[in-house]
């Protein structure tokens, strides 16, 4: 026995200066990415400490690993075992001839696990972006001085998921800041787009030059970034939204206009259903009028009485004409509830 272990064994040593290594457990999806010939960029993100809320952020230590379009929550798992990372070395101890040795170069007391999370980036972006609201032609909002890149880097979700939320909110960069428009603003800008398309004979559901509509709307003074963000949001699925051309999806657009008009009037007790339907039909191209029916936006509205209509629930996306402070408050309250649920689990 003794001789066998002498001859057949691999010497094992422990380095005195241990290195700092971390072990990250790789689920199949991530492993495939890493093994791919051209692995995509991965990053570890954490949410920026929220300065708006005075309470300490319970998710301060919360970090995620992001692939281009997926997010995984990082969880540290302590282990009671000793886990060594070893490296081959040529070592001679005492006066012996150096022999290949397995040397422990790092000791890990915890490993990191990845748990896929599916979450919308919209609530994070809503909190981060000031509301761009046009009232009587005036915009009273202080820019945040943050670029889109800067905003997205603070959202603990993958870039792909951030882009989806960004597009959904019709967020835009303008004059060095990033904003999201209020429903009221969207309604105004959309009416103007529709008018410009009508005047110029542009068919919105076939390819048109974005620039033409922008020129036609030039005098109205809306940020062109906002107009193109609307086109991008309403683009037909196969449309390349980065080129000079735009093409809107009829179904998406009619739905969007209906919801936007409703949200713009949110808080008004007596918005007559008939009045809404007329406004809606007037806000879409002539040939689309027949689509502007309540069935198109089913599940999104309520009828408080037989005569009136209102948007369903207190939709957080409906940015009313109030200043943004109470909004921030309400969204951070939800934020808090979410923490609570996560912690109870």
């Amino acid at each position: 026995m003794a001789t066998q272990q002498d001859e057949g064994g691999v010497p094992f040593s422990i380095a005195h200066d241990l290195q700092q290594f971390r072990l990250l457990e790789l689920p199949a999806g991530i492993l495939e990415l890493i093994d791919a010939p051209n692995p995509p960029a991965l990053s570890i993100k954490s949410q920026a400490a929220s300065r708006a809320s005075g309470t300490p952020n319970p998710k301060a230590a919360y970090a995620v690993l992001c692939t281009p379009n997926k997010t995984f929550q990082l969880r540290q798992v302590q282990t009671s075992n000793s886990v060594f990372v070893t490296q081959p070395r040529l070592e001679g101890h005492g006066n012996e001839i150096p022999v290949p040795t397995t040397c422990a170069v790092a000791s890990c007391t915890a490993t990191l696990e990845l748990h896929p999370t599916v979450e919308s980036s919209a609530p994070y972006l809503k909190e981060a972006l000031p509301i761009y609201d046009i009232i009587d032609g005036m915009v009273d909002v202080a820019g945040n001085g943050k670029s889109k890149t800067r905003i997205l880097s603070d959202v603990p979700l993958s870039n792909g998921e951030c882009e989806v939320g960004w597009k959904e909110l019709i967020a835009f960069e303008f004059a060095g800041s990033s904003y999201r428009p209020s429903a009221n603003t969207l309604a105004q800008v959309w009416k103007s787009i529709n008018a410009a398309a009508l005047a110029g004979g542009t068919k919105l559901d076939s390819q048109f030059l974005t620039e033409e509509i922008l020129k036609a709307m030039d005098e109205e003074g809306y940020p062109s970034e906002l107009i193109t963000a609307i086109f991008r949001r309403l683009a037909a699925d196969e449309q390349d939204t980065n080129g000079p051309w735009s093409c809107l999806d009829r179904t998406k657009t009619v739905h969007f206009v209906g919801i936007t008009l409703l949200e713009a009037r949110e808080g008004e007790a007596n918005y007559l259903t008939a009045e809404f339907l007329n406004a809606w039909k007037d806000c879409v191209p002539e040939s689309w009028r027949t689509d502007a029916e309540l069935s198109t936006i089913k599940d999104a509205y309520v009828l408080p009485s037989t005569m009136t209509i209102a948007v369903k629930g207190v939709s957080a996306s409906s940015a009313k004409t109030e200043d943004s402070t109470p909004k921030v408050g309400s969204s951070s309250r939800k934020w808090h509830e979410r923490f609570g649920r996560a912690r109870q689990r």
Binding site: G8, G9, P11, S13, Q87, L90, H93, P98, C103
Partner: peptide, 24 residues
């Protein structure tokens, strides 16, 4: 008990041999 093996440039720190691994 320690040696700094100069023959291998990758290991620049010393170590203690604690045992042997055997794959019988």
């Amino acid at each position: 008990t320690t040696t700094s093996p100069s023959s291998d440039f990758t290991s620049n720190s010393s170590s203690t041999q604690v045992g042997k691994l055997v794959f019988p």
